[in-house]
């Protein structure tokens, strides 16, 4: 008879790449109960979750489309978390970026794209930063917990957008609570004909590379990592921790703002009420799953994009609620975090 026991020791290195795979398997085991309750065949469901989206070019590109804003919000969250600033406000900062992009797109959308698009990107970045400003000031000046303030800012902007769309920006032609379309030169052009994939995806990848470089290779990045790892240690070493956190908080807001630009200029072409659609919150999941490493974050955004696309396929094919996708996502996060804990243990045969 074999006997096993668990002991505290770092798991062997070869288990690392297994983590996501095992996490997915465990998640599917857990969520299959729900799928069975929804009267569908779990195996079929997983097939549609993971394989069907990749089996046609169109839907595979759709995965990239879904991943684009998630890469940006995930990176935004990563940037702040690295410096020890827990920005939960990517949701609102994205919305602020979207508002700015809409305004720029409507106002300057008839100029050349060479002017309109950069203006929109800058405008969205600045707006995201502006929306991150108040919590950042409260944090460094008065030590007010940013988790609370950034979260509250999210609700404020939801109502602000609602006011905009039911008041001054309401589309005069359709009279829907949505803004008029942005000018045609402001629209992000498509990368591949007949797909929705737009240059926002390229922008997101560029942001990944820049942020990777900033965090790992620049003095600001080292200051951020130092402040995030030990505030007292960083302060002692002469780092201005407040300033570092302040910068990180604003840049994080700016990056989240870019996600808003990308959604307006690449997908909707106008502002809608549900522009954020939890992309900011999902960014926290993406950042955590990606281990706060820019490359990991990009990969996890692609994966969440796949599940997002997959959940639509599943619901179309098998008639289960789309929300199953959300459940799978959340379960996956919990399982992965749990797996990270298991990394500290070994199983030993007696």
């Amino acid at each position: 008879m074999f006997k096993f026991r668990i002991e505290r020791a770092p798991a062997p290195m070869w288990t690392k790449p297994l983590i996501p795979i095992v996490a997915i398997l465990v998640t599917f085991l857990i969520t299959s109960i729900l799928i069975i309750l929804a009267k569908a065949n779990p195996l079929q469901a997983y097939y549609h979750f993971l394989i069907t989206p990749l089996s046609s070019t169109f839907s595979a590109l759709e995965v990239l489309v879904k991943a684009t804003p998630l890469i940006l919000t995930g990176i935004a969250v990563t940037f702040a978390f690295t410096s020890g600033y827990f920005n939960i406000g990517a949701e609102g900062q994205l919305a602020a970026g979207a508002i700015a992009a809409t305004w720029v797109g409507i106002t300057f959308g008839n100029l050349s794209p060479i002017i309109a698009i950069p203006l929109m990107i800058i405008g969205g970045f600045v707006a995201g930063m502006a929306w991150a400003l108040i919590p950042a000031i409260l944090k460094v000046k008065l030590k007010v917990d940013e988790v609370v303030t950034t979260l509250l800012m999210n609700s404020i902007i939801v109502y602000f957008i609602s006011w905009l769309l039911n008041g001054p920006w309401r589309d005069p032609i359709s009279n829907w609570p949505q803004s008029p379309d942005i000018g045609s030169s402001a629209i992000f052009f498509r990368l591949i004909p007949k797909s929705r994939l737009h240059i926002g995806f390229i922008i997101a990848l560029i942001v990944v590379v820049i942020v990777y470089f900033l965090i790992k290779k620049t003095p600001l990045g080292l200051r951020m990592r130092a402040s995030g790892a030990s505030k007292t240690g960083a302060e002692f070493a002469g780092i201005n921790v407040s300033k570092t956190i302040f910068i990180a908080a604003l840049v994080s807001g700016g990056i989240a703002g870019l996600a808003g630009v990308s959604e307006v200029a690449g997908i909707h072409y106008h502002l809608i009420d549900s522009i954020s659609n939890e992309l900011g919150y999902t960014g926290i999941i993406v950042a955590t799953l990606g281990g706060l490493h820019p490359i990991g974050v990009a990969i996890s955004a692609l994966f969440i994009g796949l599940i997002d696309t997959g959940s639509q396929t599943v619901s179309r094919m098998l008639g289960v609620p789309v929300y199953l996708g959300n459940v799978v996502q959340s379960a996956l996060l919990l399982v992965t975090l749990g797996m990270l804990l298991f990394q500290n243990y070994r199983i030993k045969r007696l």
């Binding site: 080292l222 990592r225 130092a226 790892a229 240690g233 002692f236 070493a237």
Partner: peptide, 9 residues
């Protein structure tokens, strides 16, 4: 010494 240094760096 722990207060002047950063263990994770």
């Amino acid at each position: 010494r722990h207060e002047g240094t950063i263990g994770d760096l």
